[in-house]
């Protein structure tokens, strides 16, 4: 029996050795293998150098027109799924897209910078982006989805007189307790569910501390968001470049440890805010939209029909005329 075991072991080992020696062996940390190169690694990508970092950024339209700054979700997402908003350029707007620091194709940063400075990092970056593009007297509207709408509000809360309008789509909340409530409804864990299974099973195959591995793993686990039974109302994937895993983890940790309240100066914001929620997001709904949007003094609340949380992608046909009507009042 012992000899049989040894024989079997040797046969399996030999077969495995032949198999692997015939294949290319790849290293997951290598740039460009599993996730795309960032602006730091690929200088051909469009970028701007602001506030001590290098951001992946693009603009559409006449730079002298009223500016729309598009803010993607996450934290840790990117603007690829929001590119349909470039259509506002044909309506007489100057549309600015950028991947937030550490996200998408923007330069990566280690988490110590987020851990020490928290929300001031993306707020200061947004300020720097606006300053980079803004001409004297140019109107600026912020258009944010999910986390992007929270970031827009954090910015407005600090500088309520700097912005001329805001389109906010399903921000989790403007305080940590409101956000936490939303997250609990969205991420209710049923360990017998395929959605959870898809997210946790991979932990035994891929572990990492390097950005590339973590970003790749976050992208793979992100597919669970639109798995059958998801509460966000997503019926398929949305395009993305790279998940900024380090930023996502540190932002959540920071919020958990320090909490936040972006509502302290919102009453000073004079323009009407267009606040949208989707028809299919079971975790959001009108009641949460009313709760969150009540922090602003003037709100136009809209339900975007036929879509889930990815409003600017899956719900574009419904969202576009609503947003354009609002933008024309700000112009």
């Amino acid at each position: 029996m012992k000899h049989r075991l040894i024989k079997l072991t040797l046969i399996v080992a030999a077969a495995a050795a032949v198999l692997f020696s015939a294949c290319d062996i790849l290293e997951p940390e290598e740039h460009g293998r599993l996730v795309p190169k960032t602006v730091e690694e690929d200088p051909s990508l469009p970028s701007i150098a602001v506030n001590g970092t290098l951001l992946h950024a693009e603009t559409f339209g006449d730079p002298n027109n009223p500016m729309i700054v598009v803010l993607h979700g996450g934290p840790g997402g990117d603007y690829r799924s929001m590119l349909k908003c470039a259509a506002f350029a044909d309506d007489g707007f100057f549309v600015v897209f950028y991947d937030q620091r550490g996200c998408g194709l923007s330069k990566r940063h280690n988490r110590d910078i987020y851990d020490s400075r928290g929300i001031s990092v993306p707020v200061d970056d947004l300020d720097a982006v606006i300053r980079h593009y803004r001409a004297p007297g140019q109107k600026v509207v912020l258009l944010g989805l999910s986390w992007g709408a929270m970031l827009a509000t954090a910015f407005i809360d600090e500088r309520p007189n700097d912005i001329d309008g805001a389109i906010l789509l399903e921000p989790g909340g403007f305080t940590w307790p409101d956000t936490e409530e939303y997250l609990k409804r969205w991420q209710t864990i049923d360990i017998f569910d395929e959605t959870v299974n898809d997210r946790v099973f991979v932990d035994q195959i891929i572990t990492g501390s390097e950005h590339e591995k973590l970003d790749y793993k976050a992208a793979i686990q992100g597919a669970a968001e639109y798995a059958d039974g998801n509460k966000l109302g997503l019926d398929g994937p949305s395009p993305f470049w790279r998940m900024g895993a380090v930023y996502a983890m540190s932002a959540l940790d920071y919020a958990t440890e320090h909490s936040f309240d972006f509502t302290t100066h919102l009453q000073q914001f004079a323009p009407t805010v267009l606040f949208g929620y989707s028809e299919r997001n079971e975790a959001y709904g009108r009641s949460h939209a009313e709760l969150v949007s009540s922090a602003y003094p003037s709100v136009q609340l809209i339900e975007v029909p036929g879509t889930g949380h990815n409003i600017t992608y899956a719900g574009w046909e419904s969202f576009y005329p609503m947003a354009l009507a609002y933008l024309n009042t700000v112009r």
Partner: peptide
Amino acid sequence: DVMKEYGYAGVRDGWYVPTGGN
């Protein structure tokens, strides 16, 4: 194809070594 269309078109299939440990 979903990964290549919606995520990273240049993602490389193959054997990756090593990928993790616990």
